[in-house]
Design a protein around this nucleic acid. Structure first.
Lengths: 341, 341
DNA sequence: CTGAAAGCGCTTACAG
DNA sequence: CTGAAAGCGCTTACAG
């Protein structure tokens, strides 16, 4: 290695010790909160440290303590405001806890296991996985090493990892009830990631809700929307151009619902009069006057806090936490009263 | 430290060496690409490693090599899709380069220096700073240690750090020209972060452009919009409700422009007929049919790649890179032809 | 409270 | 190609 690389003035604790006239251990103690050290020594150390621009090396500390004080965050599609907001919330909360964040972007295709391996190399204290499916081999690896893993907004049946998610079935039922009350007669559905539990549960709930209202769900039109704006737009465009145009549409997340509303806008189809729309998540955009989307709110901040509580709990027993979604009625559905006359 | 903590099976290279019947150094070589090792030994090591679920400890590696292979990302408001998209782009590119990402969220108030200090503790190989102003003392600290810093979408005059930004003055001029051509007569401006160079330059350019078109800029109405949706909404609401309602509005970023458009929508003011709007950034939302915003596109991916090139350049000479914004004309302004008749 | 010393788990000249 | 050994920069019993 070239000697120029590490940079000119990178003082180590020994350098500080020498300058301060104390032992290296004293310097170490000075920088550990609660280290037993006299005020006078502390003073000497701090002066010397300031003079040398000393910053403790946390790699060395981690090696000694076997704790990296780092949490890995595996996030998905940041183009979806739900996850961008979640990331914001996670990073704010973790910073409060003085944890460093190692960020991993779930690759579009495949190799999640590689990311998990790198997390293990970096000796993270915990792992939050947001939108992705992880092999049971990898979670076993983590658990084996005593590294807690929590899935956020996903639940993987049969995997013994903690998870925090919303009662997606209940949300689906609520969506159905809301569209029925809004006066819907011909129902349609735009679905998201086919292999996700969130999507499956929301769809199941929706069908269950329709059934309970006496709707013949064999008539239910379904299009995949890929959990993206463009997917939602295209799916809605197709649905709304068809001969048997639906008048009630459930999108299994908000970003697809925004696409659907814009498709209706482009087709000059009135919302909610010609077609009512319900989404899921309550992302910030849903409230804007361009959309005013009726949706099922996921209590994001609560979910983030729950996730971190599970993650950093002393005894990491895999726990499944489910929170309730809440209906936020806006202008893309008619309220019951409006429907009656 | 309780012995339970570090987790049951966390094998070290010595363990692998013992099982494989080779030296610890051989294990190390097996896991370094290009390590001089025979195929046979490699084979033995890998078998033993797999058996023990061995994962190298990168803390120890970093301590030895004095390289963490980690880049710190200091990001700002993830509620602004511009930064969410930028983060996505950075994380994808850095992952390609096999760099780990240490994520820091710029606190709403103040203490950025603390974040920088923590980055230094973690021995990061480089720092990307997105939306924030950093003290020159801190950048000096970084430079001193030979840690390259690059400012993204910010330029701090007088600070000897690299930066990548858009020609914001030129963008402001273009915004003015576009609004003039669209038939504007009474101009207004919604400004962003008061202490940011991006805002200042865009405003300067805008005024310069108006001046060049013979507009009396003493008449220019200005409102602060804080670079947020809500700020833009409120500012526009105030401007559009006033007696001397402007008919041409420049918002110094897109997210404020979306707020402005929604304010006009709520006030039943037609765009672009009653008021034309130009934004800055070209975030994904700008193209949606709910908005169809005319804006100045920042070439985000190019900027991200430039930033990483500067960051990881062998010899880190502070370099200022400026890219050109490009006008994307959509429906919130009238084209020149439409204006003539 | 303080210092000398062992140890965290790797990498890498050095000698063979 | 391979192993023994020093070293990366801390933390933390241990003894005083």
């Amino acid at each position: 290695m070239s000697d120029i690389q590490p940079g000119p003035s990178r003082a180590r604790s020994v350098d500080v010790a020498r300058l301060a006239g104390v032992s290296q251990a004293a310097v170490s103690r000075a920088f550990r909160p609660g280290g037993s050290i006299s005020a006078k020594t502390l003073q000497k150390v701090m002066t010397a440290a300031a003079q040398l621009n000393y910053v403790p090396n946390s790699m060395a500390r981690s090696l000694s303590t076997r704790q990296s004080n780092t949490v890995a965050l595996l996030i998905g599609d940041l183009h979806n405001p739900f996850y961008a907001t979640a990331l914001d919330s996670f990073s704010v909360e973790l910073q409060k806890l003085d944890k460093q964040i190692l960020l991993f972007n779930a690759p579009r295709a495949g190799d999640l296991d590689g990311a998990i391996l790198r997390m293990l190399e970096y000796q993270v204290d915990g792992i939050v996985i947001t939108p992705a499916t992880v092999s049971s081999r990898m979670t076993a690896l983590c658990l084996d090493r005593g590294i807690p893993v929590v899935m956020f907004n996903r639940f993987i049946p049969g995997l013994s990892v903690s998870s925090v998610s919303c009662d997606n079935v209940a949300g689906g039922v609520l969506a159905a009830q809301t569209l029925v009350r809004s006066g819907g007669a011909r129902f349609a559905l735009i679905s998201g990631g086919a292999d996700t539990t969130t999507n499956r549960d929301r769809v199941n709930g929706f069908e269950r809700g329709l059934l309970a209202a006496g709707v013949d769900i064999r008539q239910l039109l379904t299009r995949p929307g890929d959990y993206t704006y463009d997917g939602g737009y295209r799916a809605a465009r197709s649905l709304l151009s068809s001969a048997q145009r639906p008048d009630a549409l459930f999108c299994t997340n908000d970003i697809m619902a925004l696409g659907a509303i814009d498709a209706a806008r482009d087709l000059k189809i009135a919302i909610p009069d010609d077609v009512a729309v319900v989404g899921f998540d309550d992302i910030p955009d849903a409230a804007r006057s361009a959309y005013r989307l009726t949706t099922l709110r996921q209590p994001l901040n609560l979910m983030v806090r729950e996730a971190l509580t599970l993650l950093l709990a002393e005894e990491a027993v895999p726990t499944v936490r489910v929170v309730k979604p809440r209906l936020v009625a806006r202008q893309t559905t008619r309220s019951q009263e409006e429907t009656i006359p």
